[in-house]
């Protein structure tokens, strides 16, 4: 029974949460009022853990919530149920896109959307910056990292590993 409920609730979240990152949070808050899978305090812990561990935040949240509700089976079920609606929808859109990609109208619309998406990404980046750049030290590290990325085209994995070491040395 709990598996059925988990499937249904996370399928709904996957269908209704449009956008990135933390958009699933309000839905998870609703869950705390309806079920005793986790309470609000645990949810806040979950958000912190989901943000600072590898993996997209939305997926981490589903896994964590599912595990709290019904163990490993729950984690697996909640995560798969959450991605299922998107998988179905993206499949049909990708199919359509393939058929229509040479249409001048589709090309025109996509070209018009690109600058807006770049603005969205910049906005999200500034949002993250507000959280991470808290003093002169962190601001200096950000500037140095940005400059290094422009000068040396190394893979992002390199910079993520290097910045973990920098964090340890500077005690950020």
């Amino acid at each position: 029974m709990i598996y059925l409920l988990l499937f249904w609730e996370f399928f709904k979240i996957g269908l209704l949460a449009v956008g990135g990152g933390l958009v699933t949070v309000p839905f998870l808050f609703d869950l705390t009022e309806e079920y005793s899978w986790f309470d609000k305090r645990e949810l806040i812990d979950m958000i912190a853990i989901a943000q600072s561990t590898p993996g997209p935040v939305g997926i981490n949240m589903a896994t964590y919530a599912g595990f709290n509700a019904a163990g490993i089976g729950g984690a697996l079920l909640a995560t798969l149920s959450e991605v299922l609606p998107a998988v179905i929808i993206v499949y049909y859109i990708a199919k359509m896109l393939k058929r229509w990609q040479d249409s001048p109208y589709v090309e025109k619309v996509l070209k018009s959307i690109r600058p807006a998406v770049i603005a969205l990404i910049l906005f999200a980046g500034l949002d993250v910056a507000k959280e991470t750049v808290v003093d002169w030290q962190t601001a200096a590290v950000l500037v140095v990292l940005c400059a290094a990325m422009r000068l040396y085209k190394k893979s992002p994995f390199f910079y993520i590993a290097a910045s973990a070491v920098i964090g340890l040395i500077l005690k950020i």
């Binding site: 991470t132 910045s163 340890l168």
Partner: peptide
């Protein structure tokens, strides 16, 4: 925690860097 503090800064820098590349190409 210190490691994650550093990682979060490089995530910010990576996003800014990507925006810069895409801006030059698509705007």
């Amino acid at each position: 925690q210190w490691m994650f503090g550093g990682i979060r800064i490089s995530v910010t820098a990576l996003i800014i860097n990507t925006v810069w590349d895409m801006w030059r190409k698509s705007v």
